[in-house]
Design a protein around this nucleic acid. Structure first.
Lengths: 157, 157
DNA sequence: ATACCTGCAAACAATTTGCACAAAC
DNA sequence: GTTTGTGCAAATTGTTTGCAGGTAT
């Protein structure tokens, strides 16, 4: 099962699959797999909701055995983010957090109650893009789409 | 012509219409129309591309006669933003800027070359929302949609 | 007259950077 | 052994806040 197949239906990222995929990418990318980085990776993988760099840093300092410093945490996040392993999630209030994701064309559905993030691929924007391109004369090259709502679990309560 | 009519077709915000609309809202909201605030307002109205608080502050300090302090600039931006007169524009690189906008359900098309922002209303997401709601059991309540491309002017060159 | 607003400067928060040491390959 | 990564602490950057004095209504 490839990462992309794993994401072909709307679903929360699977922590083990994600961790393994990133480790693989680090190895094949000639990037060293160190204890501090693994600690960042496994901590991030557990999050179902978006997190900030500082939240992650605090979490890492106050739990577990290994405590990578700020520089390592920030640098690892930066690397993961620019390689597409972390998606930037924008809350309705305007804050920005990260969530584990897979590289490629992805969108996210975020629970406004518990924060759980569901990724999906098909955004069905084609017609809109064609119409807007015609109306505005833009050559449209990309988009940001994110949805907000209450997840199944939170609706039960 | 109401602000909403002004936006019913994809278009750049008209500086004068925007400034007047905000002034009207300030007056009817019992908010005082002071020189420092007007300087912020007219400066912002001129921007075609997204800007940050600090960029605006620097611009205001280095041009014109009136030079409101940081506190005033930040507080005015905060007010405009929360009242819907400024849209948060997310660049593809992940930075966040503001752009003049009108309150209500709006989306934005941003030129990746010159930054010009075009607002539009109809996002044609209904079918997608229904399908995703069914697939995920979320009660979808909102969304963030932003498009990127090259504007007509930039394509000419 | 009296809210409300402004400017300053200090406080705060978040992130980046330089560099000596350490670890992975 | 060499290259790459780490941790610390300082520097930088961006934003918020308290308060004394000023201004719009």
């Amino acid at each position: 099962m490839s990462p992309n197949e794993a994401m072909s239906r709307p679903a929360r990222v699977n922590p083990e699959a994600w961790t393994n995929a990133v480790r693989g990418a680090w190895l094949s990318g000639g990037r060293r797999v160190t204890e501090p980085r693994l600690r960042v990776l496994t901590t991030v993988a557990r999050y179902a909701a978006p997190f900030t760099a500082e939240q992650l840093y605090t979490d890492i300092q106050t739990t577990g055995d290994e405590h990578p410093g700020r520089a390592t945490v920030y640098r690892t996040l930066e690397q993961l983010s620019s390689a597409g392993w972390l998606a930037r999630i924008h809350t309705q209030g305007g804050e920005v957090g990260y969530a584990p994701s897979f590289p490629g064309h992805m969108h996210h559905l975020v629970c406004t109650n518990c924060g759980i993030v569901i990724a999906f691929e098909d955004c069905a924007l084609d017609e809109l893009l064609v119409r807007l391109a015609a109306q505005t004369n833009f050559a449209i090259e990309g988009h940001l789409l994110q949805l907000y709502g209450r997840c199944a679990e939170c609706r039960k309560r």
